[in-house]
């Protein structure tokens, strides 16, 4: 849920970055978004730990207020900032192929492709180097702290990765649907396996099936690409959940060997 909150909360950062740099250059956007993302995380923790606000409510309060500030900024600077609320909500993946990166006069392909590619590589590198620290802090913070692992630093780096992913994906799929991409494959995988390693691989597989299947479906039905991908991911989750419920019911009734118990 914190990922969802951050994807909304970064809006004022993006707006300010647009306004200051007068460009859609990803690096500025990321800096703005990362700053506000970290601020939002700190604010949420402050509300929760120091002021004893319910954790749900501290997330909700923070991201809505920041998002509202972002919307007002965008409206205020609407003459100079080429960004609107709808783009934030659903993204513009259909326009991605037209926004190409020109390098020395050569067409290098869509910018978003490059950005996402670099993102993917950095996430893989981050995982390779940080796997153990992340694993420890995700499963047992106290134990990790006892072992001398910098829990705060790991959480902060994970949050920054989430912000980075959000910012890069957000122009393509929008702030809400990026949440589907972050949550749904992992949740589906978690229904089936328990080991972190297999969960990572399986969730990547589900994400691939969901996005390829969703994209194909959207071409056939002529519907919104991002929306269809999110729906496909949701349907995938539902399918696995139902399948699992049916199977476990059968096991309960008949036992593992198929005999009625």
């Amino acid at each position: 849920m914190i990922g969802d909150a951050i994807s909304h909360a970064v809006l004022p950062g993006i707006a300010v970055a647009y306004w200051l740099s007068q460009s859609r250059s990803s690096i500025w956007m990321f800096l703005g978004a990362a700053t506000v993302g970290v601020l939002a995380t700190i604010l949420i923790e402050l509300l929760r730990k120091r002021l004893k606000v319910q954790s749900d409510a501290s997330i909700g309060m923070t991201f809505t207020t920041l998002f509202a500030i972002g919307v007002v900024m965008i409206t205020f600077w609407s003459d100079s900032v080429d960004l609107d609320q709808e783009c934030v909500l659903y993204g513009e993946i259909a326009y991605v192929p037209f926004d190409v990166w020109m390098f020395h006069g050569q067409n290098m392909g869509p910018k978003a492709l490059w950005a996402s590619g670099i993102l993917l590589c950095s996430i893989v590198v981050y995982l390779l180097f940080g796997y153990k620290g992340l694993k420890m802090t995700s499963f047992n913070e106290d134990y990790a702290a006892v072992l001398g692992i910098g829990v705060g630093a790991w959480n902060l780096s994970l949050m920054s990765m989430v912000s980075l992913t959000t910012v890069v994906s957000f122009e393509s799929v929008g702030a809400i649907l990026v949440v589907a991409l972050i949550v749904a494959p992992a949740a589906t995988a978690y229904l089936l396996v328990e080991k972190l390693g297999s969960m990572l691989l399986l969730s990547a597989a589900f994400a691939l099936i969901g996005s390829l299947g969703g994209y194909t479906l959207s071409k056939v039905l002529e519907t919104s690409i991002a929306g269809t991908i999110a729906s496909t991911l949701g349907a995938l989750f539902l399918l696995v959940l139902l399948g699992k419920t049916v199977v476990s019911k059968q096991i309960n009734t008949y036992g593992l060997e198929g005999e009625k118990v």
Binding site: I176, S218, S231
Partner: peptide, 14 residues
């Protein structure tokens, strides 16, 4: 988050 984002995605699709 799961219900939120996938329902919303379905809404956008419709």
């Amino acid at each position: 988050s799961l219900v939120l984002s996938t329902f919303f995605g379905f809404g956008i699709m419709l």
